[in-house]
Design a protein around this nucleic acid. Structure first.
Lengths: 136, 136
DNA sequence: GAGAGTTACTTCCTGTCAGGAAGTAGGCAC
DNA sequence: GTGCCTACTTCCTGACAGGAAGTAACTCTC
């Protein structure tokens, strides 16, 4: 039995290769392997369920982020459909951000990165001391 | 039974929090959520087993990386004990890089990122079109 | 009703850093 | 001795991160 056109198209879809400079998936990988993206995704719904968070809450959680970078990061995440942005016209306007299902699936990855960093911190620190001692 | 000093120290270890700007684990997370780090780790032992690769092999695999960035990334990975660097004094000297066990454990994360990017590419692309259409 | 305060940004400026191009070492080949 | 090879290092320039300050729209205070 020969393949239908639809089957061929489905196969072609798999051919994204993040190693190729021009490939869209490479650009996507470049975008998501960004420190602020990783931190924002981890912060949103830090505790299991994907909780909606306000702009100022996220800013407080991610100590050291500039307002500009936070806005920029949130915008790109919204554009890529990873989070939703909801404006509530309260007294001073409040804006809340929430993970979409797509964002939720990526968060699983970034949470892995974060916990890796935290659990292997000691090993890395030890390795650095060895390295610095060796090269001195 | 009260805790010994060693047990208390072991507990204190767990208190790395990547959300705090000053925390070493935050700096580590910043370092590993870098596009070249992610790509290099994915490239090393692309196919299951952690294969040693030469400098020029990696450069070829990661289309678009400059020699400077590749050298810089490899050095930082070596310093953190994620890869080993081996110089073989052949005719023109050859240098090979190989994942350590620590690097191998991180590669599991970065491979997740890469495959996420490749499998969800279509969805993200669709979301972007929606977003751009909405804001025009 | 003028001034201060609130949130969620935007704009401007400056230092840092990524990336391209070109130079380096050290040995063989012709 | 001129050229070629790998694996870098150095130099330069444009882009971008991050800090500081400005903005809008409304409310509360005095």
């Amino acid at each position: 039995m020969t393949k239908t056109a639809a089957q061929k198209r489905a196969q072609a879809k798999v051919e994204y290769d993040a190693f190729l400079a021009g490939c869209p998936s490479r650009q996507l990988l470049d975008r998501i392997s960004d420190k602020w993206v990783v931190l924002v995704l981890c912060a949103l719904g830090d505790d299991g369920a994907p909780t909606a968070m306000r702009y100022s809450e996220i800013a407080r959680r991610l100590a050291g982020v500039s307002q500009k970078m936070l806005t920029q990061t949130l915008r790109s995440l919204e554009r890529d459909g990873l989070i939703t942005r909801t404006v509530t016209p309260t007294v001073p306007v409040t804006v809340s951000y929430e993970l979409t299902d797509l964002g939720l699936s990526l968060r699983e990855m970034t949470r892995g990165l974060r916990s890796w960093a935290q659990t292997h911190m000691d090993e890395v620190l030890a390795q650095r001391q060895d390295y610095d001692a060796r090269s001195s």
